[in-house]
């Protein structure tokens, strides 16, 4: 079956959504929005879906403060982040590439990330670029650490990383990202070459299950139509014809 990298990533993200939980999608996150909308139409019809600024999925009427306060009270079970850099400890960098005071690239800043990474129950990281410049040994600035000492109140943290090449899982024991699966047609070596830190693969190299025919039909039909209200360019380019 033919599918795009975005369709595969959305299907992988959808599997992480549990029925009945509260799932929130932040800014510039069309892929998580696609995955969550797929899950809500497939196995998680009772999930509460929040997609920032989507006319059908955003109940907050008093600015970002109302949403942040909601999250700070521990009401978000699943959230999504990306990063200019992501390292093997699950640290995210949204501040700057290079030295902070003389950066090569100034990134947009953390906004809610240094809070949501602690207060959401689980966070899935996503990047549409899986290269050694993104997946680095150690991030240049830590906007949000993957784990924290026991004196720091923390409800959640990283759960998975989803890229066009592979799925990584965060091991809370070792506090490191490990390889969970490689996408169909790829080898461990190919994913390792694209990753700037040594990949640990305690369960070997399973293949990520591809999207099913039902996944693709839902993504290319109702999910595309709903996403077009917020992400019109993504909705046109990410999916194959229904």
């Amino acid at each position: 079956m033919t599918y795009t990298p975005e369709e595969l990533m959305a299907a992988v993200i959808a599997r992480e959504v549990r029925d009945g939980e509260t799932v929130a999608v932040g800014t510039l996150s069309p892929l998580p929005a696609a995955g969550v909308l797929l899950a809500a139409r497939r196995h998680a019809p009772r999930a509460t879906v929040l997609i920032i600024n989507h006319e059908d999925y955003w109940p907050f009427r008093n600015g970002s403060k109302e949403f942040y306060d909601f999250a700070q009270r521990g009401k978000i079970d699943l959230f999504f982040h990306s990063g200019g850099q992501i390292d093997q400890l699950g640290n995210l960098n949204l501040i700057a590439i290079g030295e902070h005071d003389h950066p090569v690239i100034r990134l947009p800043g953390g906004a809610g990330a240094p809070m949501l990474y602690y207060l959401a129950g689980r966070v899935i990281l996503f990047r549409t670029e899986h290269t050694p410049r993104i997946f680095v040994e150690r991030v240049d600035c830590v906007t949000s650490p993957g784990s924290s000492p026991p004196r720091v109140p923390r409800r959640g943290g990283p759960a998975k990383v989803v890229t066009p090449l592979a799925v990584l899982a965060f091991n809370p024991g070792s506090r490191r990202l490990e390889l969970e699966s490689v996408h169909p047609g790829l080898s461990f070596e190919e994913v390792q070459r694209s990753t700037g830190f040594p990949l640990v693969a305690p369960r070997g190299t399973p293949t990520t299950p591809p999207p099913t025919a039902l996944d693709l039909a839902i993504l290319r039909g109702p999910v595309r139509a709903s996403l077009a209200k917020l992400y019109p360019i993504f909705a046109l380019s990410a999916f194959l014809a229904a």
């Binding site: 501040i95 902070h100 953390g110 240094p114 809070m115 906007t143 949000s144 720091v152």
Partner: peptide, 13 residues
């Protein structure tokens, strides 16, 4: 007080 943030580079920066 702000939730989260502890252990990030915000303390340094």
């Amino acid at each position: 007080p702000v939730p989260g943030h502890v252990g990030s580079d915000y303390e340094r920066l």
